[in-house]
Simulated assay, not measured.
Amino acid sequence: MTEVRSTPTQRVAPEEPPPSDPVAAAWTDYLAAARQLDGVRRGAATAAGEQARSVQAAREELTVVRARLAAQQSRLRERGVPAMALVPSPPEVTVAARSMAAGPAAVLTALRTARECADAADGVLDARGWVAVVGVWRASRPEGWPDRLRNLLVYGPLAVLGPVLQVVLVLTGSGARIALAVLLGLVLPAVAFAVGWVGVGRFFRPGPDGRLDRTPRFGVLVCGVPAALCTAGILVAVLTG
Rank of each mutant, 00 (worst) to 15 (best):
G39W: 07
V40H: 09
R42V: 07
R42Q: 13
G43S: 15
G43A: 15
A44L: 15
A45F: 09
T46G: 10
A47I: 13
A47T: 14
A48C: 02
A48W: 03
A48Q: 06
G49P: 01
G49H: 08
G49L: 12
G49D: 07
E50I: 03
Q51L: 09
Q51Y: 03
A52Y: 03
A52E: 14
R53F: 00
S54G: 12
S54W: 03
V55E: 15
V55S: 12
Q56L: 15
Q56A: 15
A58N: 05
E60W: 03
E60K: 00
E60I: 07
E61M: 15
E61C: 09
L62P: 01
T63F: 03
T63M: 08
V65H: 01
V65K: 00
V65C: 02
V65R: 00
R66T: 07
A67I: 10
A67G: 08
A67E: 11
R68E: 15
R68W: 02
A71R: 10
A71F: 02
Q72P: 03
Q72S: 05
S74R: 05
S74V: 00
R75A: 13
R75G: 07
L76R: 01
L76Y: 05
R77E: 06
R79V: 12
R79Q: 13
G80C: 09
G80M: 14
V81I: 14
P82A: 04
A83L: 08
M84N: 04
M84A: 12
A85I: 02
L86P: 14
L86T: 09
V87D: 01
P88M: 05
P88C: 02
S89H: 12
S89K: 12
S89Y: 07
P90I: 09
P90G: 11
P91Y: 03
E92Y: 01
E92C: 01
E92P: 11
E92M: 11
T94K: 02
T94S: 07
T94Y: 03
T94R: 04
V95A: 10
A96C: 05
A96S: 11
R98M: 10
R98K: 11
M100E: 10
M100P: 00
M100G: 03
A101D: 11
A101L: 10
